[in-house]
Design a protein around this nucleic acid. Structure first.
Length: 677
DNA sequence: GCTCCACTAAACATCG
DNA sequence: CCGATGTTTAGTGGAG
């Protein structure tokens, strides 16, 4: 919620800016118009109004003005009951019919054309422009006709929905149908807009700033804002997956356009919840934002690492100046950029919706789990700014302290997820004491998985104990290494590199690491040329895995629940991070390790929990494992490690292996910390 | 209350 | 001798 408010505030600022500037994506038209002779202005205005009229019959006022003005001009100064503003009257009546025709985007008859030719001597350029205009207008009229038909259909659909059955399914179907119509309408609208833009570029049509985005308004009036919101909700909830794939960009764009332009739509609410969105502001917000960013180059979100980050561009720009040139040249205000902007809006909107849904889901899950297990644990804490405040003494102490928080405010850990790790790296965690108790795997992991998956960076930066056992972390570190083997010191480095928490209390956790390496038979010490390295005995894992799952109903149930959990998580993550398209259950070869590896880690923990349960049942006895011969010393199982040996939890893969990553000397009690490197 | 487990702490041994 | 590494034991507390 906080991050939302922050976003809102941010966007709101832009929106306000938009509003004050009266900006719209047709803005260049204004400038274009300004560059023209003033004598052409009235005709152009009339043309725009006329277009609006044909498109939408609701625009009566503008229509009347335009029609009257047109009539007046066409009849050569024959004024017929003008109700239009005086500014129209003040414009000097054009003397030449052809001029009127050129300035007035109206289809002229052949007779008129002939008349024009007879009466006036036209330059070739004039004739050409006239012909172009006529061509454009004809096309436009065709579009308008189709548009009207579509709009009527939409109205019918709306009526049907309003009076149709109350069953949700029917409503959803209607909504889906409605969306289809809506998209059709929007396609038409898009065509019209493009056409308008082309006209404007050709100088054939200008639109007054006072009446921007006229083509957008008919649809807005065709649908009630609340209906649009509802429709949008339903559609996105029902078809978010398909839409997110963006198979039909135009439809997505158009949908956004429709929603944005219609009224206080969801988009406009998100981006500008407080501004009185009349549709014109919101629809142009993205463009204006990008423009505003140009004014603040230092933080231009479209430029980074010498590359233009415009969606689908990735053009290399040496410096910011070249980037600005590139931006102005390649991504100027045109149909394509506008469409891309809408696509981006759609993407953001989709992500926000997905996030909201996932938050709800996670909240429900946490609530459910907490009620069942009364084990909120510290898992959510890494992401919970509120509850993390309680992390003042130690992780073990913090866990119980968070107990009252979690059941009552299960969303708390979720919220920071969207805020990002940077926000979470708070001061309250710095005083976390030595490792005393790892978090429970069984409950902790499911609860925190979503958090972890999105907060790898968090553990890197925040001094919060990761909810993994030492054994699993060690194994992860080893498996991530190129040769699947690490020296003890390298394991140390991995810990300190990946987890800020392990940059403190080195003596404690290093001892624990050594202890685990020796204790768990899955860790095999191999004498190397350079010395001893530690490897993971994968065979051990493979042999033990089926053994554990078999025969234990509770375990099987546990596993089912775990997978039942992981699957939606996977879907959610993939949906949310479609850009990364990380297969959570595939092991190696992850393009982006951030989510995938963390998800693997989650799964590991889940499996570890399952194995943990099972080991209590059947594995606790010595000699049950065929691999005992390898390490007969250890009777004990290593519950968490064995799983997902196939899943290199390459938390590290993205991180550079620079060893001097570690020390955070700010914190107390680091007696052995300097040993690490 | 018992058992298992993870963790912590520490003693001890070995090696460079 | 020192520090790193490795092994082992003991104790603690959470959880089933």
């Amino acid at each position: 919620m906080m991050q939302e408010s922050g976003t809102e505030t941010k966007s709101n600022g832009s929106a306000i800016q938009n509003g004050s500037s009266g900006g719209n994506h047709l803005l260049p038209c204004a400038s274009l118009r300004e560059g023209r002779s003033n004598g052409e202005t009235p005709a152009a205005d009339a043309g725009a109004a006329e277009l609006a009229h044909v498109q939408q019959q609701q625009q009566q006022q503008a229509l009347q003005v335009a029609r009257q003005l047109l009539l007046q001009q066409q009849q050569q100064q024959q004024v017929s009951g003008l109700k239009s503003p005086k500014r129209n009257d003040k414009q000097p009546a054009l003397q030449v019919p052809v001029s009127v025709a050129m300035m007035t985007p109206q289809v002229i008859t052949p007779q008129q054309m002939q008349q024009i030719l007879q009466q006036q001597v036209l330059s070739p350029q004039q004739l050409q422009v006239l012909l172009q205009q006529q061509q454009a207008l004809m096309l436009q009229q065709q579009l308008q006709e189709f548009y009207k038909k579509q709009q009527e259909q939409l109205q019918l659909q709306l009526l049907q929905q309003q009076h149709a059955g109350k069953q949700p399914k029917e409503q959803q179907q209607v909504a889906t149908q409605q969306l289809a119509f809506q998209q059709q309408l929007l396609q038409m609208q898009q065509l019209q807009q493009q056409h308008l833009l082309s006209l404007q570029r050709q100088g054939l049509l200008t639109i007054q700033p006072g009446q921007p985005a006229l083509p957008l308004q008919p649809l807005a009036q065709g649908m009630i804002p609340t209906e649009l919101q509802q429709l949008w909700k339903e559609v996105t909830s029902a078809h978010s997956a398909e839409e997110s794939t963006g198979s039909n960009h135009s439809s997505l764009d158009l949908t956004t356009t429709c929603v944005s332009s219609s009224a206080p739509s969801k988009t406009s609410l998100i981006m500008n919840p407080h501004a009185s969105t009349n549709g014109q502001l919101s629809v142009h917000t993205p463009k204006r934002e990008s423009l505003s960013h140009e004014e603040h180059p230092h933080s231009h979100p479209l430029y980074g690492h010498g590359v233009c980050k415009w969606p689908g561009c990735e053009a290399v720009c040496e410096d910011f100046q070249s980037f600005l040139k590139h931006l102005n040249s390649e991504h100027a205000l045109d149909d394509r950029s506008t469409a891309q902007c809408r696509v981006q809006m759609q993407v953001v909107q989709q992500l926000e919706l997905q996030l909201a849904k996932d938050k709800e889901r996670l909240q429900a899950m946490m609530t459910h789990l907490h009620v069942k297990s009364t084990e909120p644990k510290a898992a959510p804490q890494p992401l919970n700014l509120v509850s993390s405040v309680t992390l003042s003494k130690s992780a073990s102490e913090a866990s119980p302290q968070s107990l009252p928080h979690t059941p009552t405010t299960p969303t708390a850990p979720i919220t920071p997820v969207t805020q990002g790790p940077s926000v979470i790296t708070t001061t309250s965690m710095h005083t976390v004491g030595p490792i005393r108790r790892r978090y429970s795997d069984k409950y902790n992991v499911p609860i925190s998985s979503a958090d972890i998956a999105q907060n790898q960076e968090f553990y890197k930066n925040a001094e919060v104990r990761p909810p993994f056992t030492y054994a699993s972390l060690i194994r992860q570190a080893i498996l991530e290494s190129p040769e699947k083997q690490l020296t003890l010191n390298e394991i140390y480095n991995w810990f300190t590199r990946m987890f800020a928490y392990f940059r403190r209390n080195a003596a404690t956790w290093k001892n624990a690491v050594r202890h685990n390496l020796s204790l768990h038979k899955c860790f095999v010490r191999v004498e190397n040329v350079k010395g001893a390295v530690w490897t993971v005995d994968e065979v051990e894992f493979q042999k033990r895995r089926p053994q554990k799952i078999s025969g234990n109903p509770s375990l099987i149930k546990n596993m089912q629940s775990s997978h039942a959990y992981c699957t939606p998580l996977n879907a959610a993550l993939q949906a949310s991070m479609a850009e990364n398209s990380i297969p959570l259950y595939t092991t190696a070869s992850m393009g982006n390790p951030t989510l995938g590896n963390l998800a693997s880690a989650i799964r590991e923990e889940l499996n570890g929990a399952m194995e943990h349960t099972n080991s209590n049942e059947s594995d606790s006895s010595p000699g049950r494992s065929p691999m005992q011969a390898v390490h007969p010393v250890h009777v004990k199982e290593e519950p968490l490690d064995p799983e997902e040996a196939e899943g290199p939890l390459s938390l590290v893969t993205t991180a550079n292996h620079s060893p001097d990553f570690d020390h955070d000397r700010d914190y107390e009690d680091e007696p052995v910390n300097e040993d690490m490197e």
